[in-house]
Design a protein around this nucleic acid. Structure first.
Lengths: 343, 343
DNA sequence: TTGTAAGCGTTATCAT
DNA sequence: ATGATAACGCTTACAA
């Protein structure tokens, strides 16, 4: 050990012992006072607090963590921090957890599965629990994470495993309502813009849309990614399907697609209806404004933190929260018209 | 103390002692092996590693932190995580720091000064260093943070204090170039959309624009915030100034403004030129695409991490990095035309 | 209600 | 090159 300060006023940061000594109480009492545990007389409490203030003492969080086994840190892992869906989640978790005295370690897997596993494990070394957003990982990896013996809450994916709690948005119902809206407008051929394949949300959305085939809707598919660029890139392919409406798996790709359609002289919604998913703030201010599905990320995040806090307090795992979603009908969808020759 | 496992295979997680015992070496040796410090024979290194693998041992990061005084965590504090400027920064820091084996504690002050101070201090309890993005805090608060005795890197603000390192974007030069572009187009009356007042960036941008008054440019001001909604809200006020071009302090507010102008039948850029700042991804895909200022946030973030790493390695504080910025001319700016009566 | 002291799992100093 | 062992600063049985 580096020989540092030895008791009293000298140099470094004051320790619990300095306070105890100066206040003529035991370290246990000081510890109790700062832990807020009941059973310390008002007299001593005051004396400890005064002394601590004089010395500028604050508990050493790392030492605390080591001794107690709890860090008051939670980890949150997202596949892409640059996606509004995820930073909205993080922002709210930051807020809620912060209010409860927790700090938040953030990690971004960049949609990489190995990274997801790696980062998850790494976060759990420090954190009391882990919130995994939009996990693509296998149940096996999930169990491995759980093997660390700490609570895990999964957001954006229904998990069968009764050992994790999960928060999901009602993707299926909302998607059905959205597509029904297109059908009601008179669309008979819809193209779905697939997102990153392994996401559970993605599968739910696709399942809901696919279900309309039975009712006579023609459904084409185009694969792409989760970003504006990804949507922009596949415009020609989309046009090639001959559809009159596009259901994008998220707002970002819908926005990219609309921009590309616009560049090609395909007017939205006259020549092509486009829907997104997430209701990110921009969608409302675009021209035309974007028809999409709103699902309160704040609500989801709060639910995730609530579940996590419960687990940390010893509640049994396995809770399921479903956040309601609803279509938001704006100007990017309309009845199909006679399509001009798009060359 | 909770009576937990006592030596050997029993229950809980294996400790360094378990490994040492089983491998017939001292804990010091095991520690050295896992610290990667030179001076352990190949023979013992192998034995330790093997045993550790058998036992599934990994060093306990919290214990490590306590003993060494280093956590391999850095904190990053932003005024608003939902602002693309800041999550882009965070994302890159996550990446760079992660590659160097650091975890990242994120906090969001929601533009609140007291929160900025509070959170900064709180982060520094755990973190080896703090990256403060777009700090509005006073030099006094900054010094208080530095008083924690850990390195602080400030991004988005020039700091006179030679005790902190800082990374700034060249707001002044880029802004001047942007406004010159408007002047060259023939604009004679420009309105500036102010952002949150205390941001240094904001002041730099305004200073650059204001400088054009001396050259005969008429410059009006409208105060607003940093979000799309904020820009949307002040459209009427902007129109009221009678300007032919608007320079928004960031892309978000520019986008909101453009949407509102569009709703009022004011065409961009025909009736009103609009510029943003930041070059967020959306700007490129809007219609019309947004003239703005690009400043590589990735570059800034990497520079910030580099500075931080340097400080952690004991380099002297006070470094200044200036990231170049450049105007990106797109379709939202054009020569002013005869303005229709906007009622 | 308060105090004593044994951990928590490492690192790092000092011998050897 | 390796080992023994005292910190690191706190929490928490257990005793008083």
């Amino acid at each position: 050990m580096r020989g540092q300060r030895r008791d009293g006023v000298e140099g470094g940061r004051p320790t619990i012992r300095d306070v105890a000594g100066r206040a003529k109480v035991s370290v246990a009492t000081v510890s109790r006072v700062f832990a807020g545990s009941a059973g310390v007389s008002a007299e001593l409490t005051r004396r400890v607090l005064d002394t601590a203030a004089q010395l500028g003492y604050t508990p050493h969080v790392v030492a605390r963590s080591l001794a107690s086994g709890r860090s008051h840190i939670i980890g949150i892992l997202v596949p892409n921090l640059a996606n509004p869906h995820f930073y909205a989640l993080i922002k709210q978790v930051l807020h809620d957890a912060g209010r409860d005295g927790f700090q938040v370690l953030v990690a971004d897997s960049d949609e990489s599965l190995p990274a997801e596993r790696e980062l998850g494990i790494s976060l759990l070394q420090r954190a009391d629990g882990l919130i995994m957003c939009g996990p693509r990982c296998t149940p096996g990896v999930l169990r491995e994470l759980l093997g660390q013996g700490r609570p895990v809450v999964v957001v954006d994916r229904k998990i069968d495993d009764p050992v994790v709690s999960s928060v999901v948005m009602d993707a299926h119902g909302a998607m059905r309502a959205l597509v029904q809206h297109l059908v009601d407008l008179g669309h008979e051929h819809v193209t779905y813009l697939h997102g990153p394949a392994r996401s559970w949300q993605e599968q739910e959305r696709w399942r809901a849309l696919r279900g309309f085939r039975r009712r006579g809707l023609q459904v084409s598919e185009v694969a792409t990614g989760a970003t504006v660029e990804d949507g922009h890139r596949v415009a020609d392919e989309v046009i090639g399907t001959g559809c009159t409406a596009v259901v994008a798996h998220n707002d970002l790709s819908a926005i990219g697609l609309m921009a590309a359609l616009n560049e090609r002289g395909v007017r939205v919604p006259e020549n092509m209806s486009v829907t997104g998913y997430d209701d990110i703030p921009f969608g409302r201010y675009m021209s035309p404004s974007l028809t999409t599905v709103r699902t309160s990320q704040e609500e989801a995040a709060s639910a995730a933190w609530l579940a996590m806090r419960g687990l940390l307090e010893g509640h049994r795992a396995g809770s399921r929260t479903v956040i309601a979603s609803e279509p938001v009908l704006r100007r990017s969808t309309a009845a199909p018209r006679i399509t001009a020759d798009l060359g």
